[in-house]
Design a protein around this nucleic acid. Structure first.
Length: 247
DNA sequence: CAGTTCGGCCC
DNA sequence: GGGCCGAACTG
């Protein structure tokens, strides 16, 4: 493009937006979140100029299509700002990546959130949120974080006992990815009426929101279980249990 | 075997 | 639509 006749003289702190329909003053702020501490997984002590910023990515061999081949673009690490110490007046966050990366209230301050965008697969485009503790441990969900916070033990996944070896299946061959017939569903009331917990202790967390957590034998009861309990409770307290035809 | 990513259910 | 978790695949 050719040069313009009159270049912009001076850029004021806030460029005048040409957007006519901006009621909430959604102007383009310089970098509201940048200062808050949003950076790309750059360690604080990473003083290695020799290493280029490009992450070590293995070249994807064409032809061979693996699930792990097409990985997401870049893991976005967002450091959680300690608190409002950075700036007294915090500008309204725009709905952006930052907003998504804002730490939930239940997340400790020293933890970080990793946003990963799926680039391959049927669920491409979906954003997965991961949580990392100062130690570097990675968690996939709030539940895992909670469990780790309470018990201090990281949930181990995939026991993979492989107790039964089914020779019928063709071994050695690559296992089909779960294409179909994988998850079972449809299960009415999961509550085990025959083996109810002997004792349940309920604790209420007041901050930031009222959250009741049930514990059985010092083991935290998953919310899903609590929901099942609620469902069962409602079921047993249902006044009208007439399934027969009214007559 | 551990780590990483995708599929897909559940909410 | 997002969260969550199991499963699958790779290094």
């Amino acid at each position: 493009m050719s040069e313009n006749s009159s270049p912009p003289p001076v850029t004021p702190p806030y460029p005048t937006p040409v957007d006519p329909n901006n009621d909430t003053g959604d102007a383009i702020l310089p970098d509201p979140l940048l200062e808050s501490g949003s950076f790309i997984d750059a360690d604080q002590n990473e003083a290695e100029p020799e290493t280029p910023p490009n992450q070590q990515r293995q070249p994807i061999p064409e032809g061979e299509q693996g699930s792990g081949s097409g990985i997401a673009s870049e893991p976005i690490s967002v450091a959680a700002p300690a608190d409002g110490s950075a700036g007294p007046t915090r500008p309204p966050m725009k709905r952006n990546l930052e907003e998504m990366a804002k730490r939930p209230d239940w997340l400790p301050e020293n933890w970080t959130i990793d946003l990963r965008v799926r680039s391959s697969g049927a669920t491409a485009g979906s954003i997965d949120r991961y949580y990392r503790d100062p130690s570097g441990k990675k968690f996939r969900s709030k539940n895992e974080v909670m469990h780790y916070l309470e018990t201090g033990n990281k949930l181990k996944r995939k026991p993979n006992s492989d107790a039964e070896a089914t020779p019928s299946e063709s071994p050695g061959s690559k296992k089909q990815k779960k294409s179909s017939s994988k998850r079972k569903k449809s299960e009415a009331l999961k509550f085990d009426f025959l083996n109810p917990p002997a004792a349940v202790s309920w604790t209420c967390t007041n901050a930031p929101q009222e959250t009741w957590t049930a514990r059985v034998d010092n083991k935290r009861v998953p919310e899903s279980r609590q929901r099942e309990w609620a469902a069962a409770f409602q079921h047993v307290t249902e006044p009208k249990g007439n399934e027969g035809t009214s007559n």
